[in-house]
Amino acid sequence: MSSGLEAQLDGKVERIADKYDRERQNVLAMLHELQEETVGNYVKERDLEKLAQLLDLAQSDLQSVISFYSMFSTRPRGKYIIRVCESGPCSLMGSDSVFDALKEKLGVDIYGTTEDGLFTLEPSSCLGVCAVAPAMMINDETYGNLTRNKIGEIIEYYREKEETENAADEKGE
């Protein structure tokens, strides 16, 4: 990695820390933002170290915060995080078959990431859209009343979107 890029990345952590006044109480907001800006949807060890330095906290302290909250990850994940609700209402309305359909369609197990790096499959507690159970979220989008067919269509939609974006990128270059 070139030193220029390194500096740029470090700049990211500093910028985020400064945005939130380097205050401990804003740690969740900083981690959310850091994760969003990192390819692979996770918090890098190196960034964590830097953030701990900037906030004058032990790295283990920050690590313990990250590990507590399910929305944070320290391992690279797919571009799209699929969160399938496995709470009572969704379970009653068939979340098991939602998992089955997704595992089959994506070829991964729970917590697995597809080979193309596009999707990570995660279980989730209640997503708060129980009237349309069973439900899942893909990044910020919520999908309800899921059936095997609908799941297939949704995944295809994301795959096509990715292809279109890639094609556009290539054209752009």
Partner: peptide, 21 residues
Amino acid sequence: VQGAGAYVVGEETALLNSIEG
């Protein structure tokens, strides 16, 4: 304050700890 996924934080004192980062 935006949460980060933890059911137990709905308990009021856990919520306060979470706000404190």
